[in-house]
Design a binder for these strands. Structure first.
Length: 282
DNA sequence: CATTTCACCTGGTGGC
DNA sequence: TGCCACCAGGTGAAAT
């Protein structure tokens, strides 16, 4: 499901709903895939602590964990002792539900909260990951690349200098920019008029700047509409987003380009389905 | 090191 | 209705 706008929507929704709550208990499934840290380690780190803040870094959701009795829980300034890191993979969901609501199939983690509600991690394909940071052991979670929403023109252009890979593959590389995925790579390249197969290192400075502006605009617009719901994605309340209605090329193979009417083409770039207008994108 | 390919999973859809 | 191929928002390991 989830690229930057969807992860941002989920993280903000979870933060609004459960910030300040105490984690009373935990439950984890017996599948091994979603767990980078062991369920036992996560249980020990989570149970008895308070959730002081939930936010997005790249495509990761970070939950700051503070001591139960600490000050500054409500405004997120409490001392952070550990962080729970959630990556939604392709089909992951993070849901805040009343305990009485039936637990959905493919639920892999449940945090029981002081309000009586539960935070549930649900993931059919199990490409998602759950992990843990102990801040006493080092830095907080930073993520692998630059933040797409705030990166400046100079830094952005620098990322692609000399790269002999298609620009779309570079956009998907999380060590360069973290948070861009298949939908927003295709949509930003369309809005910038750049063909996804163009070699990244051969783009002009003006083209790269057009791409940066288009990418930031498309991500902000998508966040404002609660993200794109293609099949699985929903927010923390289980509600779908609306940005899929604004897609100009993604999954619109054969449909007319909204600008020139030429049928949208689908090809493979970096092993991913890639959609573009052969007339508007050079 | 840079880049490409493929495996990891389940479920939905569309053709026959 | 059933079966099968193909497709899907994600990485990360292995090969080149």
């Amino acid at each position: 499901m989830p690229e930057l706008p969807e992860v941002e929507t989920v993280a903000n929704g979870v933060d609004e709903r459960i910030r300040g709550e105490r984690i009373e208990g935990t439950w984890f499934s017996s599948h091994r895939e979603p767990f980078k840290a062991t369920p036992q380690a996560m249980s020990e780190a989570l149970a008895g602590r308070r959730i002081s803040r939930v936010y997005r870094v790249g495509k990761h959701i970070v939950m700051d964990l503070a001591p139960d009795a600490g000050r500054g829980i409500a405004d997120g300034t409490a001392p952070v002792e550990a962080q729970w890191i959630v990556h939604l993979g392709m089909t992951g969901r993070l849901l805040v539900s009343a305990a009485a609501v039936p637990v959905p199939p493919h639920t892999h983690a449940v945090l029981e909260l002081s309000s009586g509600r539960e935070l549930r991690f649900v993931d059919a394909r199990r490409f998602g990951r759950l992990d843990l940071r102990h801040l006493a052991a080092g830095e907080g979670f930073a993520g692998p690349g630059h933040e797409p929403l705030t990166i400046g023109a100079e830094e952005f252009a620098q990322l692609f200098r000399g790269r002999k890979t298609p620009i779309k593959a570079a956009l998907l590389n999380q060590k360069l920019l973290h948070g861009v995925g298949n939908i927003y790579a295709d949509e930003s390249l369309f809005r910038a008029g750049i063909r996804p197969t163009r070699m990244a290192g051969r783009l002009t400075r003006a083209q790269l700047e057009a791409l940066r502006v288009a990418l930031q605009a498309v991500l902000r617009h998508a966040i404002s509409l609660g993200g794109s719901s293609v099949s699985d994605y929903v927010d923390a309340d289980g509600v779908a987003g609306f940005f899929q209605l604004e897609h100009r090329v993604y999954l619109r193979t054969g449909e007319p380009c909204t600008v020139c009417g030429t049928p949208i083409t689908r090809t493979l770039v970096a092993g991913r389905g890639t959609h573009y207008c052969p007339h508007c994108q050079k």
